[in-house]
Design a protein around this nucleic acid. Sequence first.
DNA 1: GACTGTGAAGCCATTCACAGCT
DNA 2: AGCTGTGAATGGCTTCACAGTC
Lengths: 221, 221
Amino acid sequence: MKVLRVPEATVSRLSIYSRFLERLEKNGVTTVSSNEIAKGVGVSPAQVRKDLAYFGEFGTRGVGYSVKDLIHYILKILGLTHTWPVVLVGAGNLGTALCAYRGFRDRGFNIVAVFDNDLLKIGKRIQELEVLPVERLPEVVAEHGVRIGIITVPQSSTQEAADLLVKSGVDALLTFGPAVVHVPEHVVVRNVDLSIKLEILTFNLAFREEFHPSHFFEPKG
Amino acid sequence: MKVLRVPEATVSRLSIYSRFLERLEKNGVTTVSSNEIAKGVGVSPAQVRKDLAYFGEFGTRGVGYSVKDLIHYILKILGLTHTWPVVLVGAGNLGTALCAYRGFRDRGFNIVAVFDNDLLKIGKRIQELEVLPVERLPEVVAEHGVRIGIITVPQSSTQEAADLLVKSGVDALLTFGPAVVHVPEHVVVRNVDLSIKLEILTFNLAFREEFHPSHFFEPKG
DNA sequence: GACTGTGAAGCCATTCACAGCT
DNA sequence: AGCTGTGAATGGCTTCACAGTC
């Protein structure tokens, strides 16, 4: 086993594997092969083995993997052996929906507070949480030891929200929408851009069906 | 210029470039270099030029690109020269939030109907739309010529919703959550999995800080 | 001088194919 | 015989570096 840079795609697949394995476990399955995992989640068996090999030797040659043990190892790799307190900035539609999202709680993410700077939203209740003014961010982050922040504010306020979170001590951010945020080296940022996803669909619908290199574009008039 | 497989990453970046360019245009900028685009969206200048080169020669050597023209070309590549009617299946929290999402409308996506199979949700109003029973999907899809469906139902119903949409004539799907869906060859599917995104963050927080190959795991006891 | 367009090089991720266990 | 773990091969995306153009 070598230690080297782990592809981010591998990390994503580990998350998928672990949820598939949890389903197997619920169904009483105790042992699984890379082939079965591959079929279940739609990747190649070699990919499954390679992904796991970045982190150790979890299987038994000739047999396969223990479902229970493999779940444990993957959750440990992903840092999911304990729950994570999370703060959410931006109490709009998306923020409200994420507060209610079961998938987060199922995986150990616990939204401990929601913030906004809009006086119309502050004080409103979302699930069991009262929307707090952003001024209280540092206090809440410190109190709960929050390291993860989700930003669901309008694009023009995203950098501001990120700065505030980082200054409060948060060092991992999930942003929504097209804004590019700048943060210190030690802060991890990932982004979800729903428009991109839809535009990948339209590209496939529109472009791949119609494109003929010599006729479609006439860029130079 | 060659015609070859376009990397999906290129398509995603085109979406980002176009939104950056639209901001420039609003600010009265008429010409832009690959360098400026690169700085603005956080990629390399060579990447910008290569991405555009998949589709034609849109710039002028020694000068740069016309902002207005480049926007036009990219929107055409992405299939965004006309609006797209979209249907949404699943009127839960996430579905409701997406109905209100400005980003979709800004890019020409028009949610024309929302469906659910839950009697408690059918008839409810979301924005200007009344939640319809899924039985009416084929009719609405045909009426509006809908090709894009967004699925925001629980994981266990995702395949069922996909089947229904495909049977109704939709050939591009955006799904949410961990479900793997199987569709005919001609249907495009992309997925957004928010838990994966958070788990990439925790991986970076937990694993990269702590991992020591010889001490951390002892998979074989 | 400035900037695009692009073949070549470099780098990274996936797949192959087989040695090594059980 | 069955299945994992892995070096080697492949394939694909990104960066380099420079020729071409204004």
